[in-house]
């Protein structure tokens, strides 16, 4: 079931386009911001709300990497794996993260605290290597400082 607030927020977005379907990505973002991810149930509810079939909406959802169709941890770490970060030390950063978290790329830690994902160039190449934790951009990362960086995300 969509909450009243979710439906209101989606209606605001839908009014900005010629069709209700155009609000599909906004609608899934709105749900994800509140629930952490977009479940099968949410896809069915949203599809009905947007005059789409669930299969059609899932086809849209599965295209976009920022729409999470699986449950994620309390915090999402997105590590840039593009070329400038590769040149500046992405690989050692990735290896350290995987070792520290005990979770590989695309996985969630056993305690549900972090999900680790690769991401395309974060547009901060002059401060590489970089990663995004939730909405915070961390730059010029020294793998030795990872403990301190991640400590504030409980």
């Amino acid at each position: 079931m969509l909450s009243k607030e979710e439906m209101q927020e989606i209606e605001v977005e839908a009014a900005r386009y010629e069709t209700r379907q155009a609000a599909a990505i906004d609608a899934m973002r709105i749900v994800q911001d509140r629930r952490g991810w977009v479940s099968d149930e949410a896809v069915r509810d949203l599809a009905g709300f947007l005059d789409m079939s669930p299969a059609e909406l899932d086809g849209v959802a599965s295209f976009y990497n920022q729409i999470f169709r699986r449950q994620v941890g309390r915090h999402v770490i997105q590590v840039c794996d593009s070329v400038s970060c590769w040149l500046m030390g992405y690989e050692p950063l990735r290896e350290r993260l995987i070792r520290m978290l005990g979770a590989g790329m695309g996985e969630t830690t056993a305690d549900g605290r972090f999900t680790l994902l690769p991401v395309v160039c974060l547009g901060a190449c002059d401060r590489a290597p970089v990663m995004l934790v939730d909405e915070d951009l961390h730059t010029n990362i020294d793998p030795d400082q990872l403990d301190t960086i991640l400590d504030k995300y409980r």
Binding site: Y64, Q66, I67, V120
Partner: peptide, 19 residues
């Protein structure tokens, strides 16, 4: 955006805006 490099391609972007 919902993500993906293709969303920045001119006509891909049109499809993305249309949901």
């Amino acid at each position: 955006s919902g993500g993906r490099y293709m969303s920045g391609e001119e006509t891909g972007m049109l499809n993305a805006i249309e949901g």
